[in-house]
Write a protein that binds this DNA or RNA. Sequence first.
DNA 1: TATTTGACAGCTT
DNA 2: CAAGCTGCCAAAT
Length: 96
Amino acid sequence: MDEQLHERIREVVADVPPGKVATYGDIAAIAGASTPRLVGRVLSEDGNDLPWHRILRASGIPAPHIRHRQLELLRAEGVLADGDKVSLRKYRWHAS
DNA sequence: TATTTGACAGCTT
DNA sequence: CAAGCTGCCAAAT
């Protein structure tokens, strides 16, 4: 059901460990979403209680409106970004 | 009921 | 290396 999917996405996002980051595509793949757009939509609606700051774009650059907050929160967790670009190669998280 | 928009990704030009 | 186009799903108007 779509409700399951919605919850699955939240679970995956909450399962990302601090100091690590993941892309929308990864979350979508792990959660079973057909498209990463669903992940973004869920975060925009319920992300206020989730570590949405650990979710980045495929390019390692967070969304345009929140990028400032994103980088700030990531920095607090030890994730250093080159300008707006985070080193996915180092911080990208993969499910167990 | 149809159209537009949106925390995206991947390929082509 | 950068910009543009297409595919995807769901909610809002």
